[in-house]
């Protein structure tokens, strides 16, 4: 709020509200994006057509090449509006192809704008195979020295196999609105009962899966506002700091996860984790904007914000 101008908010272009194509246009240098296998190619899902379901000309993912701050990157953007961004055979093959191309061409990095409920149930077997191929190709690109950065801020979050793909990246940037997990809230409620997780309780769902909790747990590297420019800056910053993929790095990550389990394994709610992590005033965390939240977490960790 600006004094003397009540109700004024800084101009912001929502990442969450944008389509997959508009997200790419807002993240990459203006006019720099060239799509590979674009809609005119009409490479659509044969499985959906066989079931008499509507197809999309890009099968729900836009892939191509562009510039980020003048440096060549390959990028993919999943369209959550089409079948929840779910991964079918064609959708998955486009992601695999992009990552393999990165391994060959060695761009400055790969950006994955993730917005997906996981595998597309209508083509489940092909989708499952695709997800494992995506992981293989992603790690291949990283092993070749190409950093892969994931951005999560869409309405469908990042779940199932794509949740695992996300954590195979060098780094992730999330907004509070973005969510990351394996089994989503509805799946847990359906299999374990409403006492385990009430999927209709939006506050519970977002404090469990949302960007703030993932940042506090060390799964998201940057927490940003729901803003295209903020995601763009985050992508540029994260591409500049790739993570080592050697055996030592993996051993350190396993140690970190073991410590995390020891510290927080007894917690039954995200708010308990925040309390155990000694974040001041934990019940207020969901109300803070991204800047104030990062400062609060930095103070609890004894870091410079």
């Amino acid at each position: 709020m600006t004094p003397g101008n009540p109700g004024h908010l800084p101009a912001r272009r929502s990442y969450r509200e944008a389509t997959a194509r508009r997200r790419l246009a807002g993240i990459l240098d203006p006019g720099s994006f060239t799509e590979l296998l674009g809609p005119s190619e009409r490479v659509t899902s044969p499985h959906l057509a066989g079931l008499g379901l509507a197809v999309a000309f890009d099968d729900g993912v836009v892939v191509g090449r562009g510039l980020l701050g003048g440096r060549v990157v390959l990028a993919a953007s999943q369209e959550g509006g089409f079948m929840g961004g779910a991964v079918g055979e064609v959708h998955g093959a486009k992601l695999v192809g992009l990552l393999r191309r990165a391994e060959r061409e060695r761009p400055a990095g790969v950006l994955l704008l993730l917005d997906s409920g996981g595998v597309r149930l209508q083509e489940a077997n092909a989708g499952l195979v695709a997800v494992s191929e995506i992981m293989r190709a992603l790690l291949g690109a990283r092993a070749a020295g190409v950093p892969v950065v994931g951005l999560i801020g869409g309405g469908w979050g990042c779940f199932g196999g794509m949740g695992i793909v996300a954590r195979c990246c060098d780094a992730l940037a999330m907004s509070e609105e973005g969510r990351l997990g394996i089994s989503g809230p509805d799946v847990i409620e359906a299999t374990k009962g409403v006492e385990e997780l009430d999927a209709a309780d939006r506050a519970l769902v977002w404090r469990t899966y949302g960007g703030k909790h993932r940042y506090l747990l060390g799964e998201a590297d940057l927490l940003v506002e729901d803003d295209l420019a903020a995601f763009r800056d985050a992508a540029a910053a994260l591409l500049a700091s790739p993570r080592s993929l050697d055996e030592g790095a993996l051993a350190r990550e396993h140690e970190r996860l073991a410590r995390r389990l020891a510290d927080f394994g007894g917690c039954t709610d995200a708010a308990d984790v925040w309390r155990a992590a000694a974040v001041p005033d934990p019940d207020r965390l969901p109300l803070l904007d991204a800047d104030a939240f990062r400062r609060a977490v930095a103070a609890a960790r004894g870091e410079e914000p």
Binding site: T19, A20, R21, G38, P39, V55, A56, F57, F82
Partner: peptide, 18 residues
């Protein structure tokens, strides 16, 4: 060059112009 707008989501459509 071809242009596509819209998304194939419930109650919505995509239009490809060539």
């Amino acid at each position: 060059p071809p242009v596509v707008v819209g998304v194939v989501a419930s109650g919505n459509l995509e239009v490809l112009v060539e």
